[in-house]
Design a protein around this nucleic acid. Structure first.
Lengths: 178, 178
DNA sequence: TGAGTTCTGGACTAATAAGTCTAGAATAGG
DNA sequence: CCTATTCTAGACTTATTAGTCCAGAACTCA
């Protein structure tokens, strides 16, 4: 997963994967099938890990606005200080996956939808706590947040500049107030 | 440019490029240098075309809010109905380019900055026309719009669903009202 | 027209890719 | 301790890759 995330699908060779896993080719094929299949399993793992984190943090913290602010801040920290320029694995997949690979595209779509779902749930909870306007369209807001995070991480990959990313996050957060 | 945009860098072979240009290998190399160089020139061309379009449309139409709405609508049309699932070439590059390729990353960064600049100019003009709150931070808004468009196009690539994208665009537009 | 220059098709090279296969190591069960 | 099964290292195959090169076509200009 780390290798695919860092280098992308095409640029990752089987030798890279063998090095990273410590397995030989035959064991790798026996355990995971071919390269594409391993890629999809990696993405699946990434989504499982990441989504769980999102869900936990949004569910335990309140108010939602503060939880999201926290969340975005951590993203920015990771982008600026972390093992940089990897972007979001989901986003990288969305960009690189060949158009005709429907299964892979479906998995990316599902990953995005899953995150959107967690945001939606947190927004609904916040709305029922009275944190949001009664007219707030939580579905649309969730979609917006999921999409904007992709934008944030993509921009952050190309330009990991804290001030830039904080500007983006600040405007994002303002969208919650209607 | 079309081929790189559709297939990505690694998945594009020189044979693809020869087919697309109608040139033979030697002519291709004579005209554009090696593959990477041609890729960068393609990106440059994409940005020149695209940015000009952005600038023109934002400059001639007013109010800004309507111009942006129009703009987003066209994006959505293109994503939903167009020769689908190509995403934004800039975004694709940001995702696929190897991290260590500083020159390429710088070009992507410049491309994003250029778009951001056009939004900024249009926002400033709108502000001076009194369309925006006097406190509006046009720099931050421009950064946000540039980033969100990347998000929109990425999500649209994975899931070209009009309702989804219109939700995202609607929330984006609301960020202009403070 | 004709010599000189530039351009171009496509064969060629060398490297690297994914995926397969076999010989032998490790493990398990009795 | 010995046989039978499973697993693994790494050589191997076949295909494809980016990039080179040269013979000959096309063009230029006197």
């Amino acid at each position: 997963m780390q290798v695919f995330w860092s280098k992308g699908y095409d640029a990752t060779s089987l030798d890279d994967l063998c090095d990273a896993t410590g397995l030989s080719r035959s064991s790798l094929y026996a355990a995971f099938g071919d390269k594409r299949s391993l890629m999809l399993q990696s993405l699946s793992r990434y989504v499982d890990n990441g989504s769980e984190k999102i869900a936990k943090r949004l569910a335990t913290k309140a108010p939602f606005r503060a939880a999201l602010a926290d969340f975005l801040n951590d993203f920015i920290d990771a982008i600026v200080a972390g093992p940089g320029r990897r972007g979001c694995f989901i986003g990288n997949c969305a960009a690189e996956i060949p158009r005709h690979d429907r299964e892979a595209m479906a998995q990316v779509r599902a990953a995005l939808a899953r995150n959107e779902g967690y945001f939606r749930a947190a927004l609904d909870a916040a709305k029922s706590r009275g944190e949001l306007s009664r007219k707030a369209d939580t579905a649309a807001l969730a979609r917006f947040i999921a999409s904007s995070i992709q934008g944030l991480r993509l921009v952050g990959k190309a330009n990991p500049d804290r001030a830039l990313l904080e500007d983006i996050a600040a405007v994002m957060l303002r969208c919650l107030d209607e």
